[in-house]
Structures are given as C-alpha cells and as structure tokens.
Nucleic acid binder design. Structure first.
Length: 781
DNA sequence: GCAAGGTC
C-alpha cells in the first residue's frame, strides 16, 4: 500500500519523513518539487511539501477590463478558483495516482486546512481514494507519529472559512480599487493605482489618525519650576511638586515664595531595588518590532532576511505567534554551538553554569504553530555574511542570538533613589537610577540607559540651592507613529497576520500613501486625502472594524453555524452598502484626490511650482498659454484661483523669500526686478523698504538728516538722499561696485570698492565733500 | 492592473 502526504512546505515534509522513516528516507523529485520516500510498517510512503497556497481566486476573464465593466458589477460576480502553481498541481496529481491513501498534513490552522483542500481538490480529479488529515503542531516524535498513525477527517468548515475570506477580500478590494482609481483618472492624469483593501486601508488609517492628531494639536502653555541643588560639589536637579503648571500666575507665586533661598533640606529619601526581567522569547511581530526599533530595518526586509537565515539553517522558522518554549525544548545543543561566535561565549558559559539550571523567561502565547524564533547554529559575522548576501543579514542574526541568550539570563537590577527636597515649605522631586547588576543587559545592549546619580546624602541633610528656574514651555504634539507602533496596532486589532503585516505596510508605501523616514512614518498627501475622503463617506473602511466584520462571518463558517454561501452573500451585501456610500460621495473624493495627485506632480515641476493655494491648499503653478502666462491652481475647475504675471522677462521663483503681504511667492523677473505673486511688482509696493532695505552709505551732507542711498538702474548708478532734500552725487560708472562694512575714518561713510577688468581693485571714500578726498588727491600727486 | 493569505 502506498500512502501519500502533503505538507505545507518543504522543510516540514522533510522533517516528517525523517521522523516517520526513522532517519531513513530518500529524496526524489517531480517537476523540481522534492518528494521524500520511505518505508514504514510495510507501507510505501511519499511526502511532498507545497509552497503555501497553490490556487487563487480571480474574476472570470471577461471581467478583466477595468473600463468595460462597472466596478460595482464585480460584487454580483462569483470569482473562480484557479491553479497558480502549475508544477505543484502536476506533482499532486502524479502522486495521487500512485496513492492508496492520501493524508493532508499542512499546518494545523485555518489557512493550512485550506491549502490541504487545494491539494484534495486536485487529487480528487485523478484518484478516488480515502483522504485523511494529520493534525500536529510540533515536530516532536510522539506527536508526529500519533498524527499520522491516527489521522482524522479533513475539516471542511475550517477550510471554507478561509475560502470565504478569499472571496470577500477580493470582491471588496477589486471593486473599491477600480472605482477610486478610475474616478480619479477622470480628473487627473495618473498611471498609479489607488488601492483599497480590508487590511491595507486600516493600516494606512492608523498612520492617518496619528497624523491628524499632530496636525490638529493645540499647544498649551505651561510653566515648570526646577532647582539645582549642590551637595559638596555634586549638583543635581529637582522638579517642583506642582509639575506642569498651566497658569503663569501660579508659577510666579511659587517663585516669589522661594526666590533667593540659598539652602534646601533632604525631606525624604527612599532607595529601593527594582528588577527588570529579560524579554520574552521572540515571535514574529516582536521580532519585526525590535528589528525596526533597534536596527532600523523595515519589517519587509527583516522578514526576508529571517527567511534566508532559516533556509540557511542558521535560525528557526520565522513565522510564529508563539513566545513560549515547549517543556522539552533542547537549549543545550544550541547553546553549545553558539559559543562558536566569541561575542556570545561569555553569556553562553554564564547560562550553562547557572546553579539553577537553564531557565527561559517564557511569554504567555502558545499558538501551537512553531517555536519562538531562535538560533539553530552559532556562526561568526563572516560566516553569516558569506551565506546571506542581504544587507543587514548579520545584524538580524545577531539580534536573534542576543535575544535568545538574554531570555535565558537573570533579571537586571537597578537601584532607584527618590529624593524629596524642601526649599522652605516647597517640595522638589529628584530621581536617580543606578544599574547594580546587568544580568541579561550584558548581552542585550540595544536600549541601554545611562545611570543617573544622586549624591550620597540623607534625610535631614542640608544642601545649597544653586539656582531656581521657572521655565515657560508648551505641551508637545504627539510624536509621529513608528513602524514598531504600527505593527503593535495591527497585531492588537487583528489587521493582517504575522506573515502579512510587513506586506500591508509595504503596499501603502508603494502606493505613495505614507513613507518611512528612519523608524517613523509620515503620511503623504495622497494618503491623507484618501483617508479623509473615505472617513467622510465610508468611515468603516479606514478602521479595523472592517476586518473584524469579515472575521466574524468567517468564524461563523468555521463554527458550522452558517455555510460559506450564506457568509459570502451576507458579506457581499455589506460591501454593496459600503460601495453605495462611496459612490454617493464621489465628487468630494475625486476633488480631493485629483487635487492631491496634481499637486504632487506640480511640486516636482520645480521651475513652475509657486506654492500652496490659499483657497484649496492644492498647488499653484505657472501656466503658459498662447495668450500669455499666469499663475493658476491645479484644483481648476473646482478652484479658479489665478494671479497675473508680468508679460515679459524670465521668471525665477525665489524659494527662500516670503512676501509680507498676500503674495504667495516672490519671483525674479529677469535680473531687473522682483514680482510678488498676488501683489505685483515689488518696487511699487509700500513694503519694499522692509523687504529690500535701501543700501545706505552715510549721512546726507546737504540736509544732514537723510541717508545717502545707492540707486542702481539699467544705465548707471548714483547716490541719492532718502529724504526729500534732493541731494544727489555721481559714482564712477565703470567696474563692479561693492559697499564695504568698514567706514571712512574722516567722514564716517561706508567705504567703496571698485574692481575694473584687468585692473587692481580700488578702495575709497565716495563722499565728495569728505575732507579726506583732498588729502588723497594730494597723496596721489 | 484590483485583495489577503500562504511560502521560495
């Protein structure tokens, strides 16, 4: 008899073959897919590993046209399931033909059951044999043997739950994405897709909510009183018990009470030890968070590196929810191997020689999927880098190793000191923290905090008061969302899975909805406008509830309370309702998004970009037509804001200069004059004296009140009194003229410098009435 | 060309 089994992935198939074949198995191959063969209890066994899903839903080909099909019509169409990995389908059918019994042996979860059913469907096309299900969640000998010796029945409800998700996600994603993309293209030229999905959109929603809180933040004034105390040269700072004081009068009142006080007394001092436990074992989410926070590597890149580390045999399987080791987990073998890297040797010997034995600080989650991410082999930097060519590979390996070791080490111990200082009757708090015992922090120095010392003084002791400060400050807006925080939010709200969360973040980046700058995320204009429009029309779509709603339906299918068809039709109705809300608000959506897309295009057109439209916040840019040129808003025709421009002259936008009036930008017109968009030429503006203060060189020798101002025009230059006395005087008309900072010692005017071509520069006082001129002329003779 | 979920 021949028994054929299908596991979810190659590594699992090999592991099972090794256990059931008692180390005796042969690797063969069909279409490049590994098939492990062995004998057990007189039967021939063949087990192959799949590669996750090998089928996918899609709409029938006639619905592929975006323009030929109204997007909403997709909601009435049943997607069909098609093979996406032909070689696996071929191998499954070939193996099914030689089987007397088939065992589905994918991961013991919803998707695993579904992947098994994909194999089942393909096998049933060519073979009529019993199909069983082996359920296991660890690769322990007992569990695997038991799972395959006593296989159960496949669980259709569980598999159909996954199927329901596939269909509803596709329907919603396709209809919404096509609708939004096509609507925006009616008004803005773009090849980009504006995608919407039940995971990617709430992911963007988290970033949007934070950004909104930052933009809408109203800073509030507060005052804080601090004092510097001096205990025999050891200076430390304390904060007044009142903390952040919202009213200035109250802060002033306190200051008045204690102003000028020279001594303080230690009113109370408490010292206690605080221990800091090592981190729990790493599951995927925690790993991604730490790689982002400590190593500045994006979740997508981290997972890719972890995958390579796993395939190279350096670390364990990277996709797991579990943060707890099994009772019989063998730390010893791994620890022994890890000493190969000298950086870990000290920690390893501390762990293995600990009198209490090797003990893990386990976390609470046991999803029965895979053990926490841990090293399998010890390796040096050069070994890791020779095996994996991705940047950051060693940093990630090192993080996994250090985390593994840290988890097995003792807690760190800090001595925390709290001191209450008293100036007259006012209390000030000071805190100190000293690391007494490093413990796991020895090997895990990613977030070390410096010690903060307080002097060794006791209750009743007096210190000098060096100074007392009252600092005015403002409350700070929330900080930008970090990638690590986003992962936490997604995890908490059930958005995506351990394996897909990085992809959803990446999708948003690819779509131009938000971007990462280091560890923090910033929403981009298109993302903000999309979220804002959706928030106003179909708010549920940008919130986790959209996922929760589908999840609830799926759960009912899994529990056998409703059928897949019922769930799909209920779910489709919900999507239709949302779709109706979306289409009803089309105008606002399109105006906001097309404006934002045009704005982004205009901003990158550096030569013509002017600034932000005061009416609609979109971009203003120079528009040139056959009839001339003007400044217009990209929001046209929804926004008709325009400004005139001078008819001739090359225009250059001055990026660093702002107009004090309503001008939205200042332009250079040729090299001649300036033009404020919305105001006109700067020379005829009453603010010009402020924007372009006249270059003055000294007091007017006639009226003695005005200043002599340099006037330069196309054909020459001269000096003119700033008052109405009318005094002028000529200047040399050749050469480049500069007004210097140093002054004439005789009359006090600024000195001039003239440089003619092929001649030495000359410095002189230009004041014709200056007594020094006569002297100079004499000297020249 | 559209989603999310597996895994390579």
């Amino acid at each position: 008899m021949t028994i054929v089994a299908f596991a979810e992935k190659n590594k699992a198939a090999e592991e099972i073959a090794n256990i059931l074949g008692q180390g005796n198995y042969k690797r063969t191959s069909i279409e490049g897919i590994a098939v492990y063969r062995f004998k057990r209890d007189g039967n021939d066994w063949a087990i192959a590993g799949l590669a996750g899903h090998i089928m996918n839903y899609d709409f029938p080909a006639e619905y592929n046209s975006w323009t030929g099909v109204e997007p909403g019509a997709l909601l009435d169409i049943s997607p069909i399931k098609m093979v996406t990995k032909e070689n696996f389908a071929f191998a499954i059918e070939k193996l099914a033909k030689e089987a007397d019994t088939i065992i589905l042996a994918c991961d013991y979860d919803r998707e695993g059951e579904n992947i098994g059913f994909e194999a089942k469907e393909l096998a049933e096309r060519v073979a009529k044999v019993p199909i069983k299900r082996a359920r296991y969640s660890t690769f322990s000998k007992n569990e695997i043997e038991n799972a395959f010796d006593n296989p159960g029945e496949p669980d259709a409800a569980l598999a159909m739950a996954a199927e329901t998700r596939q269909i509803l996600d596709l329907k919603m994603g396709a209809a919404f994405t096509r609708y939004v993309t096509l609507s925006v293209r009616e008004k803005a030229f773009t090849k980009d897709i504006l995608s919407i999905g039940p995971c990617q959109t709430p992911t963007c929603g988290f970033v949007y909510e934070r950004e909104k809180a930052i933009r809408e933040f109203n800073p509030k004034d507060f005052w804080k009183i601090t004092a510097d105390f001096d205990a025999d040269g050891n200076v430390f700072t304390g904060t007044h018990r009142a903390g952040h004081i919202p009213e200035k009068e109250k802060a002033d009142e306190i200051m008045a009470r204690i102003k000028g006080e020279k001594t303080a007394v230690v009113h109370k001092k408490t010292v206690r030890e605080q221990s800091m436990a090592p981190p729990f074992p790493l599951n995927t989410t925690e790993f991604l968070k730490r790689a982002s926070a400590f190593l500045n590597i994006s979740p997508e890149k981290s997972l890719e590196i972890a995958e390579q580390l796993y395939l190279s045999g350096l670390t364990s399987y990277p996709r797991t929810e579990t943060n707890k080791y099994a009772d019989d987990f063998d730390f010893k073998v791994i620890l022994a191997d890890m000493a190969k890297n000298p950086d870990y040797a000290t920690a390893v010997s501390q762990i293995v020689t600990a009198p209490a034995g090797i003990k893990s600080k386990n976390g609470p989650k046991d999803a029965k999927d895979h053990p926490p991410i841990h090293p399998i082999r010890g390796a040096t930097k050069s070994t890791v880098e020779s095996m994996i060519k991705l940047p950051g590979a060693y940093a990630v390996y090192d993080l996994i190793c250090r985390h593994f070791l840290a988890n097995l080490m003792p807690a760190a111990i800090f001595e925390k000191t709290k001191m209450e200082m008293k100036i007259k009757e006012d209390l000030f708090d000071a805190a100190g923290s000293i690391k007494k015992f490093a413990g796991w922090l020895d090997i895990y120095d990613f977030e070390t905090k410096n010690d903060k010392f307080l002097p060794d003084i006791n209750e009743g002791d007096a210190t000098a008061v060096k100074k007392i400060m009252n600092t005015a400050s403002k409350t700070a807006p929330p900080k930008k969302l970090t990638e690590a925080e986003l992962l936490t939010l997604m995890d908490k709200n059930g958005i995506g899975t351990k394996a897909t969360a990085p992809t959803h973040i990446e999708t948003n980046k690819k779509r131009g909805y938000f971007e990462a700058k280091g560890k923090t995320l910033s929403i981009l204009n298109t993302g903000y406008m999309l979220m804002e429009s959706l928030d106003a029309s179909v708010p549920i779509v940008i919130r986790p509830k959209i996922r929760a709603q589908v999840e609830e339906l799926i759960q009912q299918v899994e529990d056998g309370k409703i059928t897949m068809d019922e769930a799909v039709s209920t779910g489709t109705e919900l999507i239709k309702k949302m779709y109706a809300d979306l289409t009803e608000n089309k105008d606002r959506l399109v105006t906001k998004l097309s404006g934002s897309i045009k704005t982004e295009a205009a901003e990158s057109d550096k030569k013509n970009y002017i600034g932000t439209c005061p009416i609609c916040q979109n971009a203003l840019r120079i528009v040139t037509t056959d009839n001339g040129r003007f400044v217009g808003c990209v929001g046209y025709p929804d926004c008709s804001q325009t400004y005139p421009l001078p008819k001739t002259g090359a225009l250059t936008v001055q990026r660093t200069k702002n107009c004090p009036k309503e001008g939205v930008a200042v332009l250079d017109v040729g090299k001649k004059y300036e033009w404020a968009v919305g105001v006109g030429p700067c020379f005829s503006c009453d603010q010009n004296v402020i924007c372009n203060p006249p270059e003055v060189v000294g007091t007017c020798p006639r009226c003695k009140e005005g200043e002599m101002q340099l006037i330069e025009y196309k054909d020459g230059r001269f000096l003119k009194c700033t008052l109405q006395c009318g005094h002028t005087q000529s200047l040399p008309d050749k050469g480049r003229l500069t007004i210097l900072d140093n002054k004439c010692e005789t009359c006090g005017w600024n000195m001039f410098r003239v440089k003619e071509q092929n001649k030495d520069a000359v410095e002189f006082c230009a004041n014709r009435r200056c007594k020094a001129i006569g002297k100079r002329k004499e000297a020249e003779k």
